[in-house]
């Protein structure tokens, strides 16, 4: 019986191997302007660096 369903996610440890490109959006420069969240931002380079 399957007790655990693992949701598809980006492996953060793997992403550490390549180094960041810095092309992604600045954290606060969109809707909120009053709190910092980066989880909802897109990786500009995700196809290559996943």
């Amino acid at each position: 019986m399957k007790h655990i369903k693992t949701i598809k996610t980006r492996n953060l440890c793997e992403s550490a191997k390549k180094g960041g490109c810095g092309e992604c959006q600045t954290s606060c420069q969109s809707a909120c302007k009053t709190s910092c969240g980066i989880a909802n931002q897109q990786c500009e380079n995700s196809k290559e660096s996943k």
């Binding site: 992403s15 550490a16 960041g20 980066i38 989880a39 909802n40 990786c43 995700s46």
Partner: peptide, 9 residues
């Protein structure tokens, strides 16, 4: 969860 920022970000 799949295409979000890398660890550096």
């Amino acid at each position: 969860l799949e295409g979000g920022p890398c660890i550096y970000k």
